[in-house]
Amino acid sequence: MSRSIHPALIAMTVLVYIFLIGPLVIIFGASVSDTTFLAFPPQGLTLHWFENIWEISAFRRTIVTSLQVALVGTFIALLIGIPAAYALNRHRIHLPGWLSTLFVLPILVPEIVIGFSLLRSVNVELGVPVFASLLIGHTLLVLPYVIRVISAALASFDFSIEEAAVSLGSHPVKTFFTIVLPNVRSGVIAAFILAFITSINDVSVSLFLTGPGISTLPIQILAHVEQFFDPTVASVSVLLMMLTIIVMIIVERTLGLTVVAK
């Protein structure tokens, strides 16, 4: 802090931040423009394009689908991810080393390859319905984040507390829910939020797992942009940014944002 930084570096940083935030301001401006095309600076002010989102049934439908898939997918990922993270911490010596590598595969393998492979094997070959395939894809997609975040929380948990409870006669399952889980609560919240945001924003996995009447919001945005160049998508984008802001406020209130930045 005391060391001086070269002014050129500071100027560069300012430019990088203008580059980071500027386009988001432009989306905001375009969303309230009273024109039938995307314009910035906005010409006139209107909230018509926000109303328009609800008038287009495809947007209404995909917003609901996206929320359903993100909530249920994240819930399933927590359901299978928490025990896995617990096992990786508590029973590491009894488990093979490749197991933790297995759980990062959904990040390592390109998402678009996972989406295409799920379409081929699960949707077409096994005949699993589109919505269920979409759920499977999103559960897989967020599972590594869930396991990683909860493992990190468990790594700083003192398991001797759990042992004390068990040796005093508490049932291991009851101990888990009354002792272990409450102690890693912030990890579970962080995992939930990270997974939810990842799922809501996903394109590459959902891309192949859409069918008649079933699609997610990001895929619908891509489809809409291809046909219309009106500000509706800008207003949808503003709604998504508001969702991000709400999430960041929740995180700040519960955990502090620096936790997530890591």
Binding site: L20, P23, I200
Partner: peptide, 20 residues
Amino acid sequence: LAVFPLLTGVVVRSFAWLII
């Protein structure tokens, strides 16, 4: 200010460049 764009989806952020 760096986390915010990161949590905003890729579609939204790519779309911004269509306007630009």
